[in-house]
């Protein structure tokens, strides 16, 4: 039941957009990590993570995202996030992730000035 995740990548101008739908947990989160590695390999420095509104994110998934943020600091990449529900926005604040990444209310807002 926890293996339901759908991660897709596409580009808009110079921004790599990673769409995430489903469960973001320790095991499933590896699909996001792989997508991040894939866009990093081709030299993307602007990455937008787009979460589906119905995404279920647990601490295992948060740990994966922290790992990605950590690596992005070394790679001089900028990560933005959109699509989070109010609750998970609060969780990301609580954990401290918003000190490293900006969260936007919509994909259009996130792409603006990126």
């Amino acid at each position: 039941m926890s293996n339901d995740i759908e991660v897709t990548i596409h580009n808009k101008d110079d921004v790599a957009i990673i769409n995430i739908k489903g469960d973001v947990a320790a095991v499933t989160g590896e699909a996001i990590e792989e997508a991040y590695q894939e866009v990093s390999l081709i030299g993307s420095t602007k990455i937008l993570l787009v979460f589906d509104k119905e995404c279920y994110i647990n601490s295992g998934g948060i740990a994966i995202l922290i790992g990605i943020v950590s690596e992005s600091q070394d790679n001089k990449q900028i990560i933005r996030i959109t699509g989070l529900s109010e609750h998970f926005h609060k969780i990301f604040d609580m954990v401290g992730l918003t000190r490293y990444i900006d969260i936007f209310p919509s994909e259009a807002a996130a792409l603006e000035g990126f």
Binding site: A26, N58, S59, G60, I62, A63, I64, I66, G67, I91, M94, V95
Partner: peptide
């Protein structure tokens, strides 16, 4: 790698 303890933190 894989920071832990966030579950209890939450």
């Amino acid at each position: 790698e894989r920071p832990r303890g966030w579950g209890i933190f939450l």
